[in-house]
């Protein structure tokens, strides 16, 4: 096993950086590509967990007199780092990281799926042990991607506004939207698929990154399920509590009069 013959490295494309060639080699390996998918998955999962924690601010309801605490939190996210960092600077850095991570994640997965489909036995093996979550990763992934687009168009860009939305009025926007049963339904279904996706992904990535230790495996699996469940309970709490009326109405939510203004907004 005298690997790494220098002639092999020198023969083709010595102009190419060794680091780049190495990266290419890792990406082209089915196992290496999974490392990319898992690493970007960690970034996405970390964001999802932080997002779920941030959402809990909505449970504090509209503050008496002042702003709702989730509105304050949103304002903080926009202005954090100022004046050294321009407004929304941190937000855009995070967004760019997330877009890059998502792109690598999706492209990597698509290439892996293509490869796996080609290697699939001509007759699908019967289900013995594989979990529902593991079988539906592609479906949950695609649905989550569609949901993310919808979610951003609704609450970030305010492009889709079946209920009145106003910039910066997070609590009022969310509260208003979650008075519609079908919006609540979309969000709860998305959260259910998020649970399935996270449940398999969180455990899998420990395995893929090689952090898994044989005797820790059951603990990791339970840990992944628990984390996914907690994240999804946090996410589901806001639409459920808004719809059921447990959370108080916003002090000065967008009223019917404001519909016209938001309709014209970008």
């Amino acid at each position: 096993m005298s690997s790494e013959a220098p002639s092999l490295a020198g023969a083709e494309g010595s102009a190419q950086q060794p680091r780049l060639r190495w990266l290419r080699e890792v990406w082209d390996s089915s196992l290496g590509k999974k490392i990319f998918v898992a690493t970007t998955g960690v970034i996405l999962a970390a964001y999802v967990i932080l997002h779920a924690l941030g959402n809990l601010k909505a449970l504090q309801g509209p503050n008496s007199g002042g702003e709702a605490s989730i509105d304050e939190y949103a304002h903080f996210l926009r202005t954090v780092g100022g004046p050294a960092i321009p407004e929304e600077g941190v937000l855009w850095i995070i967004r760019l990281i997330l877009i890059a991570a998502l792109a690598i994640h999706v492209v990597g997965v698509m290439q892996l799926v293509k490869r796996n489909r080609a290697a699939r036995p001509s007759k699908r093996p019967p289900v013995i042990e594989r979990s529902l979550a593991s079988r539906t990763m592609a479906l949950s992934g695609v649905l989550l991607l569609a949901f993310i687009v919808f979610h951003i168009l609704q609450f970030t860009t305010l492009t889709i506004h079946p209920t009145p939305l106003a910039e910066g009025e997070i609590y009022a926007n969310v509260y208003g939207a979650f008075q519609e049963w079908w919006i609540v339904a979309i969000y709860l279904i998305a959260v259910a698929f998020l649970f399935l996706h996270l449940r398999h992904a969180l455990w899998s990535l420990l395995q893929t990154l090689g952090w898994d230790k044989p005797n820790r495996n059951p603990t990791f699996r339970r840990g992944a399920t628990a984390t996914a469940a907690l994240v999804c309970i946090a996410f589901a709490s806001v639409p459920i509590l808004c719809f059921s009326g447990v959370l108080p109405e916003p002090d000065d939510g967008p009223t019917a009069a404001q519909v016209a203004t938001t309709g014209a907004a970008p």
């Binding site: 089915s30 290697a119 013995i128 893929t208």
Partner: peptide, 20 residues
């Protein structure tokens, strides 16, 4: 490295932790 490379070369699929 060598065995994983050969595994891919032979056209086997990748692991998605089904556990079957």
């Amino acid at each position: 490295h060598g065995m994983v490379a050969q595994h891919d070369e032979e056209g086997f699929g990748g692991c998605t932790n089904f556990g079957e």
